[in-house]
Design a protein around this nucleic acid. Structure first.
Ligand SMILES: NC(=O)c1ccc[n+]([C@@H]2O[C@H](COP(=O)([O-])OP(=O)(O)OC[C@H]3O[C@@H](n4cnc5c(N)ncnc54)[C@H](O)[C@@H]3O)[C@@H](O)[C@H]2O)c1
Ligand SMILES: NC(=O)c1ccc[n+]([C@@H]2O[C@H](COP(=O)([O-])OP(=O)(O)OC[C@H]3O[C@@H](n4cnc5c(N)ncnc54)[C@H](O)[C@@H]3O)[C@@H](O)[C@H]2O)c1
Lengths: 253, 253
DNA sequence: ATGCCTTTGTGAACGCGTGCACAAAGATTG
DNA sequence: CAATCTTTGTGCACGCGTTCACAAAGGCAT
């Protein structure tokens, strides 16, 4: 997975487990597809398959929202779409500000899937004076100096950070000071935020490294050799080598 | 979090829990920063703070790799960097292919942080004939027709999918058929893959929806009204309304 | 109306992940 | 060399999340 909330003991918000909340968008997407095909009802089994989860899990997830199914029949698609949308807060409009309009920020700004679910790109912000005024995806880029005003004026409560890592914490602080209480961070930086502010991170590099780990494991199951590059001699803090020969520099464990 | 492996019972690969694997890149990043500042050793407390985790958790994570610390002193930074790199398989080169060179694919191709950890963009692939040959980030885009050969020739085992959702499964199938065994999927599609293939997904839309959920909860704690838009009348599958008045269409659950 | 058949909703068991708290280990100082 | 102090490594308990399995519910056919 790419993210994780800032470490809090998984506060079961209003009885809905965090893990369930994370799956609701998945169900919603599958339900929307069914809705477009005018499918009236769906069983937990079918929907679970479409969403790529276990059917028992799906039923338990829905049970947290209430009893919206009909035994022997399944779930009413339209009704469930509405209930989940409402639960996720998608029946209202969420103005979003993107800070750092480089490669990634511009790609996000151009992304159409944003607006599809109540998320509206309300402002693009960058520190580069040369970019100020230049439209990206039809929206003029504004300068960081006005960040506070921009956030306030547009009632932005969700901010997206796509600046270089070094600037992320500072940008985060400014966003929070301006009233933002939810942040989606693409910079590889551990953000520190006050209580009450949610941070989720998307870290491409971490994803690839996790894949590499499993990839290596898959490949290394038979050919256990292929150890390239000599490992550096372990330096004990005092500069000496480990007292009793230490442990082998390359050990399989 | 943004992702999640294709649902497998969290196979504890060679004794290292999946949750630990997901944190190793985080530690590695913090350690690399310390290394650049020529810090020789670091305590679990310091490193945990830098990585944004609990120190006990960090120590337990490292204990799965072996006993690399020195009591009373801490961990040797360089040594730990090497051990984690090796464990994650970053001591070798991973050629990566990106399929779907649009907004997002191009941004990823241009991203420098890719190459920093052994990941090398070996090929860019797109279905648009007009793009074939055009260089993006210095790498010429190749046509989907040659996908199989491109994957084989470059020994690519990790593929990144940034096509529109409708094409994702098909592209995935072709990648897998060509020998790819790890996939990072940015398209909002549930991919189905054979046993032995790892899929991780990055879904921006889901992240925003999770943030919106908590945002709504934060805002709605005092002002519980603000229910906009009349909920659709619940349609019982047979077209009639529920027999006994059913449950209220809008219930606080 | 009655019985059958499908599917939900959930009780219960289990396993993983987390965090506390502390004993053991080793460095350091006198 | 002995005492002290720091920090690791981990046993243990707890809570969350997942999954199984099944009784209850409700539609539908007869
Ligand atoms: N491009 C990718 O595919 C990718 C992938 C993973 C992670 N990331 C991360 O996303 C972030 C952005 O990547 P990118 O490739 O778009 O970089 P980029 O250099 O193309 O864009 C960064 C933008 O941020 C702006 N900026 C710098 N400091 C700022 C500040 N203090 N306030 C506001 N704006 C500021 C710059 O002017 C620039 O336009 C980086 O942290 C990168 O590590 C990018
Ligand atoms: N842009 C974003 O910020 C963003 C954010 C979240 C998710 N996504 C997802 O990422 C994907 C790409 O988004 P985008 O904005 O870059 O879209 P895009 O339309 O700009 O790019 C898609 C590219 O894929 C190519 N393509 C189409 N079918 C193909 C096929 N069968 N084989 C190979 N290439 C093919 C197209 O030619 C195009 O170049 C989409 O699924 C989108 O939902 C994008």
């Amino acid at each position: 997975m790419a993210t994780g909330r800032t470490h809090r003991p998984a506060t079961r918000s209003r009885g809905i487990p965090e893990a369930t909340v994370a799956r609701l968008p998945l169900y919603l997407r599958a339900l929307t597809a069914l809705s477009e095909r005018s499918v009236p009802t769906v069983s937990s089994e079918e929907l679970a398959t479409a969403a790529g989860v276990n059917s028992a899990k799906l039923r338990k997830d829905f049970s947290y929202l209430g009893s919206y199914g009909t035994r022997g029949v399944g779930y009413d698609v339209e009704y469930l779409v509405y209930q989940i949308s409402r639960e996720l807060g998608l029946t209202q409009d969420w103005p979003v500000a993107i800070v750092g309009i480089g490669n990634l920020g511009a790609a996000l700004a151009n992304y159409g899937g944003f607006a599809s679910r109540g998320f509206r790109v309300a402002a693009l912000i960058d520190a580069d004076p040369a970019m100020a005024g230049t439209p990206v995806a039809g929206i003029p880029v504004q300068h960081t100096d006005d960040l506070d005003r921009i956030i306030s004026d547009n009632g932005v409560s969700i901010g997206v950070i796509t600046t270089p890592p070094g600037a992320a914490q500072q940008v985060c602080d400014r966003l929070v000071a301006a009233g933002v209480t939810s942040i989606l961070n693409f910079a590889p930086t551990v953000l520190s935020v006050p209580e009450g502010v949610d941070v989720r991170k998307v870290d491409l590099s971490i994803e690839l490294q996790i894949l590499a780990f499993h990839e290596q494991r898959k490949a290394g199951e038979d050919a256990s050799g292929a150890d390239e590059g000599a490992p550096p001699m372990r330096a004990t803090p005092n500069g000496r080598k480990g007292p009793d020969g230490d442990m082998p520099a390359v050990m399989p464990a």
